[in-house]
Design a protein around this nucleic acid. Structure first.
Lengths: 209, 209
DNA sequence: AAAAAAACTACCCATATGGGGAATTGACGG
DNA sequence: CCGTCAATTCCCCATATGGGTAGTTTTTTT
């Protein structure tokens, strides 16, 4: 009883909910601890007695699964949340991951596959299909297309650290007028007209770390 | 011959290289197109005749696999690059993904598992172990710990869009003095003293999207 | 060798910014 | 009922910033 992985499920469709519960409960090593049909009722219960793993439906009637994650994380920060979805091609993956989910799985996986994924999630992994993974990976791509010269990139990096004309000039052993010129060029190339915008673009376009 | 997935391999260890080649060539649906022992010699060849998939060793003697990705992407932008590593726990995952790799696999996978992953990569997926995936997912986490009040967060978001006191004030229907006061508070809470730093922290700590 | 791009320097000027201090209002919790 | 905090408004002031214009020198590309 002590070594079992305690699992909770939040799923509005009664058929799927009961099916999941059966799969989890009927598997060695797992124990279906709690079952809910919405986040509202789940949150107080999860606060009292939190399981190791939570299977959370993305599409819920009242509060969506995504909104639920943030609230659930507040009451049970150490629980691993695995999202369940019908559409492999939805764009909520990022919101879910940002909110604190660790995995993102499709409903209707073969039971043995599902259980394998749940073991991985409990062991510190992030189970997701490779199609989902590619969505995530794409967010890291696209850092090459930077229109800036090497020197400008260097200046922009220091800009992102909050340095001003003078301190950047000192670090690069040039006049602060030069830095100003570089920054003007950076602004025109990035189509911005303030530090804040430049820094935002630099980080989002991954021109800097 | 036309429907085969053309694969190239860059791997310095002759044993592993030949083993990989054997696995790929001996599998229906795959065709080992080119084999190299370093990026330097691979790049000119990949430019001429690029395969669908490239298996790229992370640890190469001269130019590292990570450095290689950027250069290879320049000559063959549409090729899917899958990294191969011995250590599942290295931190180069992010560099590799940022540089343009689509997958990250461990050396020594069972051949059938490897081939399954390669099919996924070719089909637009991002194969990686769930341990690697968790590393990636962790980069999306941690957006909750924001010490700012709701209003301050709102102001910070507009700050990241490059707005100034006046325009923010107009959008929020308050005086620009108020915005200034909010921004002062934001700076003290985030321990910064300029817009640039505030924006950088906001994005990196995921206080804003 | 010529042209183009990158790097560097300088000066003027209007305005935005950051730091300091001070005060009022409303809401929430002990 | 009182303290705290968020939200709001206002003032002053030194300095940083962004825009414009105008150069020279070096490096790279053609």
């Amino acid at each position: 009883m002590e070594n079992l992985i305690r699992v909770a499920i939040i799923e509005d469709d009664p058929r799927i909910r009961q099916l999941m519960q059966l799969i989890v409960d009927g598997s060695p090593g797992f124990y279906c601890h709690q079952v809910f049909e919405d986040c509202e009722s789940a949150i107080p219960a999860l606060e009292k007695n939190s399981p190791h793993l939570l299977l959370l439906d993305v599409d819920l009637p009242k509060m969506s699964g995504i909104e639920g994650i943030s609230l659930i994380k507040k009451v049970a920060p150490n629980m691993n949340i695995v999202m369940l979805t019908v559409h492999e091609d939805d764009e909520t993956v990022f919101d879910a991951l940002c909110a604190g989910a660790v995995g993102y799985l499709i409903k209707g996986l073969p039971p043995d596959q599902l259980l394998l994924y749940l073991k991985e999630a409990h062991a510190g992994g992030s189970p997701m299909s490779s199609v989902i993974a590619r969505k995530v990976v794409r967010h890291f791509h696209g850092g090459q297309n930077n229109p800036l010269s090497p020197r400008e990139t260097e200046v922009l990096q220091l800009l992102c650290l909050g340095e001003n004309y003078k301190t950047i000039a000192e670090k690069l052993f040039v006049s602060s007028n030069t830095i100003k010129a570089h920054i003007k060029k950076i602004y025109s190339k990035l189509h911005v007209n303030s530090r804040a915008e430049a820094v935002a673009k630099a980080i989002q376009k991954r021109i800097v770390r």
